[in-house]
């Protein structure tokens, strides 16, 4: 299903699924995201990295409808890349989405949060896990299929009376949930409360829940946070399989550089809300601006700075 990206094929330029243009997010006087533009390639694993407070999660919140951006355009293209003309057309007519033939463009900044998931098919997970802890593991996955089930029941109470079409949909939903539980290794715990799972399992369940809503773009906020090296390795395998078997494009925020460099096709680096680098992992790794901002400046510079501070403190004490 997904095209396996050969090295050098820059899908985010040739076939972007998400086009972010001039995104601004202001909180009062604070500019958390400042004129950010980047593309996410279809079928790519794209990593959004940057030091703490760089605005990565804010970008995620804008993409998934959690926040309304102060300014900017977020165009999500279903099936094939949208041409700039198509995106402009959708923008101009003031609609939230525009279908052209078999393809469709969704302007995410205009969609209410529930339609970002339900129609535009963007799913996300959270840095601090947000499972429905009082529900069972299986129910968490069923909730994510609410829309499919409601469609099957004709948005009415018909589902309650067990019409055949609804019965089929309910079975399909359970099957899908079972598939993902098996995939993340939680099948035996299907009927336990989600809150009782260990941390690593909760992270996997959150990914499984997101996948149950049939996303075309999966946004993962620090999926490897708090995982041990073995779990981290399993996560890499899971993400690769999601991309390969389900054709879902993945956008992730990650601090674990081993994960980022290992699995991503494309890396975007943020610092203070602006983009400072954008390219293949190799290109980004050797970008001096990234090294300076993200990995810190070199040791000599740190020592120099230390000496300077000492000087200031001493002159301050003397005066």
């Amino acid at each position: 299903m997904a095209s396996s990206p050969a090295s050098g094929s820059r899908l985010w330029e040739t076939d972007p699924i998400l086009t972010v243009e001039h995104l601004f997010m202001r909180f009062g006087g604070l500019v958390a995201v400042n004129d950010l533009s980047f593309n996410v390639g279809r079928g790519d694993i794209t990593a959004l990295i940057g030091p703490n407070g760089a605005g990565k999660t804010t970008v995620f919140n804008c993409i998934t409808g959690f926040y309304k951006p102060s300014a900017g355009r977020l165009a999500l293209a279903h099936r094939r890349a949208a041409t700039p003309a198509e995106i402009d057309a959708a923008t101009a007519i003031g609609e939230r989405s525009l279908a052209t033939g078999d393809a469709a463009v969704y302007l995410l900044e205009r969609l209410p949060d529930y339609r970002v998931s339900g129609e535009a098919k963007v799913a996300r997970t959270f840095q601090n896990i947000r499972l429905f802890t009082g529900m069972t593991v299986l129910e968490n996955l069923m909730v994510a299929q609410h829309n499919a089930l409601m469609r099957a029941s004709g948005y009415s109470l018909r589902g309650l009376f067990g019409l055949p079409s609804w019965g089929r949909a309910a079975r399909a939903a359970t099957e899908k949930a079972t598939f993902w539980l098996d995939k993340v290794g939680l099948l035996e715990r299907a009927d336990d409360p989600a809150g009782d799972l260990p941390y690593g399992a909760q992270r996997r369940l959150e990914i499984a829940r997101a996948m149950c809503s049939d996303p075309i773009l999966l946004c993962l906020d620090e999926p490897a946070a708090g995982l041990n090296p073995r779990e981290s390795l399993e996560l890499n395998t899971l993400l690769r399989s999601i991309r390969a078997d389900h054709g879902t494009s993945i956008l992730l925020i990650e601090h674990d550089m081993s994960v980022v460099m290992e699995i991503s096709d494309h890396v975007v680096v943020l610092d203070y809300g602006t983009k400072i680098s954008d390219g293949t992992p190799e290109a980004v790794k050797s970008d001096p601006r990234v090294i300076a901002a993200y990995l810190g400046v070199d040791e000599d510079a740190v020592e120099e700075a230390g000496a300077e501070i000492e000087e200031i403190v001493q002159t301050g004490a003397a005066s």
Binding site: T64, G65, F66, P112, D113, Y114, R115, V116, S117, G118, A123, R124, F126, R130, F132, T133, G134, M135, E139, M142, V143, A144, Q145, H146, N147, L149, M150, S153, G159, L160, A170, R209, S213
Partner: peptide, 20 residues
């Protein structure tokens, strides 16, 4: 499914919205 959605909204309205 209606009841599940209702319980999901009870626990975390924002997350429920993000699931459609």
């Amino acid at each position: 499914s209606l009841g599940r959605a209702q319980r999901a909204c009870e626990q975390d309205r924002k997350m429920a919205a993000l699931l459609g």
